[in-house]
Design a protein around this nucleic acid. Sequence first.
DNA 1: AGCTACCTATCTATGAGTAGGTAAAACGCG
DNA 2: CGCGTTTTACCTACTCATAGATAGGTAGCT
Lengths: 192, 192
Amino acid sequence: MTENTVLTKLLDLAVELIQTRGYNAFSYRDLSREIGIKTSSIHYYFPSKEDLGKAAMARYRENFNQSLSRIDSAVQAPTEKLMRFSELASGTLKSCDKICLGGMLASDFHTMPDSIREQVRGFYNDNEAWITKVLKSGCEQAVFNFEETPEKMAQAIFALLEGAIISARIFKDESRFHASMNSINALLTSKP
Amino acid sequence: MTENTVLTKLLDLAVELIQTRGYNAFSYRDLSREIGIKTSSIHYYFPSKEDLGKAAMARYRENFNQSLSRIDSAVQAPTEKLMRFSELASGTLKSCDKICLGGMLASDFHTMPDSIREQVRGFYNDNEAWITKVLKSGCEQAVFNFEETPEKMAQAIFALLEGAIISARIFKDESRFHASMNSINALLTSKP
DNA sequence: AGCTACCTATCTATGAGTAGGTAAAACGCG
DNA sequence: CGCGTTTTACCTACTCATAGATAGGTAGCT
């Protein structure tokens, strides 16, 4: 089952806190209060905040990649895959108090150590690569038709998703996210 | 000309610092160092950080609205207007170390007082309203053709822009931004 | 005289991080 | 098996830096 060690509890909570408040607005104290161990004990698991941040992004990234694999084995049609992807993204919103961890850390980018930055870029790369793959197969099957390269189009789609999650949160309006999703379909069948 | 009072210097620097580092990762001390007055003196101009944050977002918003007006009087064609808008947005990137202030504060949303939140939402509303207006006139002139409502489409475009700025920064690659721009055109002529 | 635009000095809270201690579980070995 | 040694998983008690904010002072202009 899901391991419920203190370590994973710390990591899960860290992920959640960063998603809601950002890297610079959460502290070992916040974790301490919630988990019920002292801040010094958290340093036992994560010597520095950098370690924690890196592990949190790595975990999130890993989970995301697993979800992408599950989509791959669950459905085959490219359109369906993209729909599942957007559902996955909308799931991170969760009652409009969290945004994507990748998007959050991308915003905090200039205040973060290199090891975390690499994880963030890796997360972007993972997702864009997956979308690119889907787009390519969609083009081969002639269900998609667009002018840009699949790579560039994947970047645009992912940027749209990240931006839409952020705007959905500030307006407490999930429909903002779903509306953006619909326009993706338009994006992908644009050529005359 | 541009007023160069201490107040405006503070405000300009605050805007820049928030754009690069975020609301929770900049301090009165940073301003103090750069401007050359003590932190306590900054409280003379902005009693609380909330006041400063609110004023910074308000100033940025105002400047942006002025730029939008300038676009309106400079060019008439909807396609041209959108192109200018995207150039405006790309201008905020500036050597890939800053993102849009609105996008940054939208990420920091959950850690901010209400008065700033209102400004952020206002900024989003201003921009989306302007884009909506352009889209509508583009539809009337039959240069645009899409299925979604202009309002929803404007939301998507603005989300795409915000997301693209963020991703351009983390990869230090402005072309990421411009690529996303190109896909907007595709978005707007999608109907068969 | 009073306002403007600063200053010094200080407060309280919080940040990450370290030093060093300890009870209990796990481990190695004769 | 049992005894000593590590290791694990915490703790208390601190450090030092920084945060935003306040009190009260002052030089100079109006």
